[in-house]
């Protein structure tokens, strides 16, 4: 189905039914799309990337980027990476387990539908409602907080307001990372053909042999790819953190919020753009590696 690029250049009989020689007309059709994407996607992107290298009067300066390598900004990047990596690993491991539990059930079963739909909601829709979900659960007056306090005398907040700091973010992020893992990993698990398992059986292998030599190696690229995707996802996330953390800006997206709402020093107006560039670089690297691993995995399908 993939229309190879070369056929277009040939534009012989292939040049479609009723095709005329006026090729510039054919190009007109894509103008609205390109104009829109140019205005609302490329222009803002370029503004950020270029702005990262400009001072407040528009001249070139490396100062914005230099500022990222020290102090609170460097701290924010390190914390963002730490949070993203930790929740990516937690999400990947538990998400893979959940995918396996779902995949070994009926393909059109209710369990699978509910888990897939629920995962879609929590992974992509999440945001602010997730912050409130955890406030209702383990906030100062949360359901679980009260329960533990009233029945077991345990004070969840003995160690401080952890829910509104990194540990809280880790917990809430894991809550949307696991579902995202289910979404990306379940198709990979479905790609495992029952014949492989049966072939191992008929050759004298066990369940362990199968996972060790066949299922595991086949899934490894998909698993690593998903790990990167989860990392990028957590790294990009803003809404949950913004709703949960109103004091201070421990991670990069919240630093950007600060920059946008005017919490920067004079002469550093473009610092937000430099932070943005930094985020794009990190996410692009993760997504690039993800694409490579995806291609590797697709080859085996």
């Amino acid at each position: 189905m993939v229309a190879p690029v070369s056929t277009a250049a040939g534009s012989g009989p292939q040049a479609a039914p009723g095709g005329s020689g006026r090729s510039w007309l054919a190009w007109l059709v894509v103008v609205p799309f390109l104009a829109y994407v140019g205005t609302f996607l490329l222009y803002p992107t370029v503004l950020v990337l270029a702005g990262a290298f400009q001072d407040s009067s528009g001249g070139f300066t490396p100062d914005n980027l230099a500022a990222l390598t020290e102090g609170v900004y460097l701290q924010a990047f390190l914390r963002s990476v730490e949070l993203s990596a930790l929740t990516a690993v937690l999400g990947a491991v538990f998400g893979a387990l959940l995918s396996w539990a779902v995949a070994s059930g009926k393909p059109e079963g209710l369990l699978r539908r509910v888990v897939v739909a629920g995962s879609g909601v929590l992974a992509q829709f999440g945001g602010v409602p997730l912050a409130f979900a955890f406030l209702a659960t383990v906030g100062f007056q949360g359901f679980v907080t009260r329960f533990l306090r009233d029945w077991f005398g345990i004070d969840l907040f003995a160690g401080g307001a952890w829910l509104f700091e990194l540990p809280g973010l880790t917990l809430v992020y894991t809550f949307f990372q696991i579902p995202l893992m289910v979404i990306v990993f379940l198709p990979a698990l479905d790609g495992l053909r029952p014949q492989w398992r049966e072939a191992v059986d008929s050759l004298g292998g066990s369940a362990w042999t199968y996972w060790r030599h066949v299922g595991g190696p086949i899934l490894l690229p998909a698993f690593l790819g998903a790990l990167l995707l989860l990392f990028a996802n957590a790294f990009s996330a803003y809404a949950t953190a913004a709703a949960l953390v109103s004091q201070g800006s421990p991670i990069v997206p919240l630093q950007i919020r600060g920059a946008l709402t005017g919490e920067v020093l004079l002469g550093q107006e473009n610092l937000g753009k430099a932070l943005g560039l930094g985020m794009v670089v990190v996410v692009a690297v993760a997504m690039g590696l993800y694409a490579v691993l995806q291609r590797r995995f697709a080859r085996w399908q």
């Binding site: 053909r193 014949q195 049966e198 072939a199 008929s202 030599h213 066949v214 086949i218 080859r299 085996w300």
Partner: peptide
């Protein structure tokens, strides 16, 4: 069981 089995298709281990 020591039985050799050849399946319809795609049974080779892709890795």
């Amino acid at each position: 069981r020591d039985m050799g089995m050849v399946f319809q298709a795609y049974s080779l281990f892709p890795n």
